[in-house]
């Protein structure tokens, strides 16, 4: 099937209804990276980090990108989340090219559709645990104000941290902080969760717990893209992609 953007689809099939368009969207990949290149310019030479990567993730898929340190895993995550700009190539989310959007719309898109989990948790130190979860909802503003606190507490309950809701991040362990980060990532109910080495700083037992959480997320029909160098995590994946020297293998 030749991939068309929503606009192209609308243009070509002008007699189609909104429902048709939504159906069209649902059958296409959730997110798709096409021929992604990232070249870092240094004073001595241009260093390519990604060399034409193409990757798509379907709804309900748990994709793990595995590779050694320096292989380009984090760069791939940064480009798919639009945190960084590719040197060449595009990222399509439900067939919409992300980099065609103005920056502020791109930010809003990220807040609504992606839940990002970082290796170092990146929680706000002066906010309590539940406030750290709620801030994502406050920024997007789509969930009614009156429901946000309850939702934050509910998400914390799901990750097993309700009893710590009023603590600040410094008062809980690394594994607990990562679970808060996952709760925060789920705050706006995004269809895709992207995690960059989420277990890189955790012990094996805590890592298992985190992976369990991701699996439950996938079980609810959401997608997960995770990059890791930990091969022990691969058992959770519905698809594993290996990256080496900026290229996908196989």
């Amino acid at each position: 099937m030749t991939q068309l953007s929503v606009q192209e689809y609308q243009k070509q099939y002008s007699d189609r209804t909104l429902a048709d368009i939504e159906e069209y969207s649902s059958v296409s990949p959730l997110i798709e990276a096409r021929d992604l290149w990232k070249v870092y310019q240094t004073p001595s030479a241009d260093v390519p980090a990604l060399k034409g990567i193409t990757l798509s993730i379907q709804p309900g898929e748990f994709v793990i990108v595995v590779g050694k340190s320096g292989a380009g895993k984090s760069t791939l995550v940064n480009l798919i989340t639009a945190i960084d700009i590719p040197t060449r190539g595009s990222v399509l989310f439900r067939s919409q090219s992300i980099f065609d959007l103005p920056e502020d719309q791109r930010t809003r898109w990220r807040g609504k559709n992606l839940g990002i989990v970082f290796q170092f948790f990146q929680l706000f130190p002066t906010l309590t645990i539940w406030e750290n979860v709620k801030i994502s909802m406050d920024l997007l503003g789509e969930i009614p104000m009156s429901e946000r606190k309850e939702r934050a507490l509910d998400l914390l309950r799901q990750v097993g941290l309700e009893q710590h809701a009023r603590k600040v991040p410094a008062k809980i362990s690394g594994g607990q902080q990562q679970r808060v980060a996952i709760a925060r990532a789920l705050a706006n109910d995004p269809p895709l969760l992207i995690a960059d080495e989420p277990t890189g700083n955790l012990d094996s037992r805590t890592s298992e717990e985190i992976m369990d959480l991701f699996a439950s997320f996938v079980a609810r029909g959401k997608s997960v893209l995770m990059v890791t160098h930990d091969r022990g995590a691969l058992k959770w994946a519905s698809r594993v992609v290996e990256i080496l020297d900026g290229k996908l293998l196989g």
């Binding site: 930010t107 807040g111 990002i116 970082f118 801030i135 920024l139 997007l140 706006n188």
Partner: peptide, 14 residues
């Protein structure tokens, strides 16, 4: 860094 995280989780520049 916190500004970066805010942007990453959906805060607009405004």
């Amino acid at each position: 860094k916190q500004i970066g995280i805010l942007r990453a989780i959906g805060a607009s520049r405004k």
